[in-house]
């Protein structure tokens, strides 16, 4: 009878969150969208922090097609893969990612001016 008190199976798993975020940098996995100035009025947009399950190349292909710009996937030693796009595509990228259901709106951080 006393066992009942000790072993109460609960649905709550305290480690669920920790397990879900395998890369676990913070509480929220932000997708950072940054801009970088190049020479003249040119610029680059970088998208960092997409989930690793996604195929970056496929996302990139769509992004390129929708925004009519070129881009690459860059392999960074610390940050993993990063999508790079030509031109200031920050707004476009964020709306695209939200609409495609890849990231939630709250998890997108747009940097830059």
């Amino acid at each position: 009878m006393s066992d009942l008190d000790v072993q109460i199976p609960t649905a709550f798993d305290p480690f669920a969150d920790a397990n879900a975020e395998d890369s676990g940098a913070g509480a929220k996995e932000y997708v950072h969208i940054r801009i970088q100035q190049r020479n003249g009025r040119k610029s680059l947009t970088t998208v960092q922090g997409l989930k690793k399950e996604f195929s970056y190349n496929k996302i990139l292909k769509d992004l390129k097609k929708v925004f009519c710009c070129n881009g690459t996937v860059v392999q960074d030693p610390e940050l993993g893969q990063v999508i790079q796009l030509q031109g200031d595509q920050r707004k476009n990228v964020s709306t695209f990612l939200v609409q495609a259901g890849i990231v939630k709106k709250d998890n997108i951080k747009i940097h830059g001016f």
């Binding site: 680059l44 970088t46 960092q48 860059v74 960074d76 990063v82």
Partner: peptide
């Protein structure tokens, strides 16, 4: 507060 991270900086130039 979150620490300041520069994040990914592409090579320009």
């Amino acid at each position: 507060v979150a620490p300041i991270k520069a994040g990914f900086v592409a090579r320009v130039g």
